[in-house]
Design a binder for these strands. Structure first.
Lengths: 366, 366
DNA sequence: ATTCCTCCTGAGACCGGTCTCTTTCAGATT
DNA sequence: AATCTGAAAGAGACCGGTCTCAGGAGGAAT
């Protein structure tokens, strides 16, 4: 072993070159793996590098090459199993393609998202995968697109940006979930989602600034309209951003003179909190309340009853986004593509017929 | 608005300086926020920078300063709620201290971990937080320590490295969990963990190369020894690295002539799979099998029965690790510190008395 | 033997910042 | 008026790599 000198200054190509008795250029060629070098020189440099414990400085390297071998990812919330699974998909594909992943959390806040994007571009990532928190506030993404740096949107498309996107078939999924409940006779169905509430709650689709949520709600409303349900929009509830807020919203809803008979939760974190609250209240599922949750999270299959969910191909969504980004990074040009992945309705035990009411449960015309 | 020139080459300080009619040095002073500059010059440079849409190149900056404003994090598995919560703690503290976080997943594999550490140091992160997958294989960490770059170990201490670490009181927690079960009369208790199995399973503590796991098992064995249980070590089962392997191991155990009456799961992912399997097998919890899981994951409180868990201060562990790293980054020297955070046993419904057996349930001497 | 071509190598510019060193100049001091 | 002081600004080296370009050596072709 070499002596334990507390080395602060790092070994550079120049040091290696000197030790090997060649020029800096030749050493760089060996160490960087480019150009042509004689076997003799190569051996000398390799040996010197090893002896000196040379470690390349990626920073310097990417400063000159312009490429960093890194892709930046900005997700809403790594804690949400949806995103952590998607990130895994991204990471796996990236690794195979030889890219490193820099991950950042926006906390679903536009301000943090902007800061994250700024930091990542400043650090010259080769490309970005972002799930935009707020699709009315996308100047920073437009900047990225304009700068020519590849950008792929994940889970939330923003068509006006004209960049690649990978999402699930949210509108169809929202419609499917609503229809399932309607077919069971439910008429007062809540759509509960984490999108920040506007000044006075939900009034129109435009109030929902998260792409995926808006899609889902549009499907939800469509199902209601087709079934002739008067005011399907009345029970769309954004603002379920924390467990506490989920509880407050649901408690308020249950206190209505005509309480809802079913809830659709827009992600598994919300779904879990609804489930927990129902159980605390002694509310029987699905007898007293039916529940459908987006995202087939692990726990949904072990509760009693297990939860009926919309299964999204989350891992694949991440992987597809990364694959697309890598294509772009490899020079693929051509128009922006929006990949829409199919979801599946997994029927388990949390949906049952609506309890008998004043109005008899009408069946939707087949 | 400016014209939409598709700018590929980025604007540099030199460009700004030229536009502002000052020297590169002066422009750099304004843009970099250092040195002294007249108000007139400052105004000119600021205006020029805005007009040209100047964006600093963080790479170039950190190449000269030697600091990158970034801390690298290598965790075993971001998908595991334990790590995603810890990462959140890290990210929050880092953000407040003005650092960015680069996150990497090792998949609990030493090889990937090494690659990740190498990449991160090559990109000159200012410091590292790592949860070492294998504490017999730490040359790469030793290199980091030797290079003088601050390193904090998370969840898994390696005392021989002589670096800061933040862990839970794993030995105490393991002992506590085992004791709870022993007090309920259990004698055949499984400790199920994800640590990769040696050639022929568990034979001695040294076979467990994950620090936290070894600690927990040592506590587990100690509890057994104190209660005079003959062969507590016989039911220590590493290798539960995937849901499938959890199933296989548990099924094998249940097929024993004298099957275990209780299982301790070393993390919530394992705990969930055990729970699911028990339910599939129609095994009553806690009547037919008692279960204690490490990590107070969300879902553990909503199952039927809810799961008794060891609650670790996961978020705080991440935050503490980040805080310590930031201290070091700010120049704190002084000896390595190992912070041990307390855990709590949260008794819920998945633990019950051992079913009557040939041997009568002995109570541990108070 | 001469020319041509290929292979290898070294010198040095360059990337985009920071930072030291030097010079200039205005205002204060005596 | 002469000197001192300190703020402001410019020139240019530097960080650690990459890469272009020009030149030298050796082998093949003529």
């Amino acid at each position: 072993m070499e002596q334990d000198q507390p080395r602060l200054a790092s070994v550079t190509v120049a040091d290696v070159a000197r030790a090997a008795g060649v020029s800096k250029a030749t050493a760089a060629r060996v160490l960087g793996g480019y150009g042509t070098v004689s076997d003799r020189a190569r051996a000398a440099v390799t040996a010197a590098a090893k002896a000196l414990d040379y470690r390349p400085n990626e920073l310097a390297r990417s400063m000159t090459t312009g490429r960093s071998g890194t892709i930046g990812v900005v997700v809403g919330d790594i804690e949400n199993p949806f995103f952590s699974l998607a990130v895994r998909g991204i990471a796996d594909v990236a690794r195979l393609a030889g890219f490193n992943v820099i991950l950042t959390n926006s906390g679903e806040e536009s301000g943090f998202e902007k800061a994250a994007v700024k930091t990542l571009t400043a650090r010259r990532v080769d490309g970005l995968i972002v799930s935009p928190a707020h699709d009315g506030d996308i100047e920073h993404l437009r900047d990225v697109a304009r700068s020519g740096r590849p950008l792929v949107l994940l889970d939330r498309a923003v068509s006006s940006l004209g960049v690649d996107a990978v999402t699930a078939d949210d509108a169809a999924a929202g419609e499917r979930a609503a229809r399932l409940l309607i077919d069971e006779g439910h008429r007062r169905i809540v759509y509960l989602t984490a999108c920040d509430p506007g000044p006075q709650g939900f009034t129109a689709l435009g109030d929902l600034y998260t792409g995926s949520v808006r899609e889902r709600v549009s499907g939800f409303l469509r199902a209601g309209a087709e079934a002739g349900i008067a005011d399907m929009a009345a029970l769309v509830r954004p603002g379920a951003n924390t467990p506490e807020r989920v509880r407050r919203i649901v408690l308020d809803l249950l206190a209505l003179s005509e309480p809802p008979t079913a809830i659709i939760a827009s992600d598994s974190v919300i779904g879990l909190e609804v489930f927990r609250l129902a159980r605390e209240l002694g509310l029987d599922l699905p007898g007293g309340l039916s529940l459908v949750s987006f995202h087939d999270a692990d726990w949904t299959s072990v509760t009693s009853p297990p939860v009926t969910v919309i299964r999204q191909p989350v891992y694949d969504m991440g992987a597809a986004a990364a694959r697309r980004l890598v294509e772009r990074l490899k020079g693929e040009t051509g128009p922006a593509r929006h990949a829409v992945l199919e979801t599946a309705l997994v029927e388990r035990g949390s949906v049952g017929p609506a309890p008998a009411q004043t109005r008899p449960p009408l069946r939707r015309p087949a």
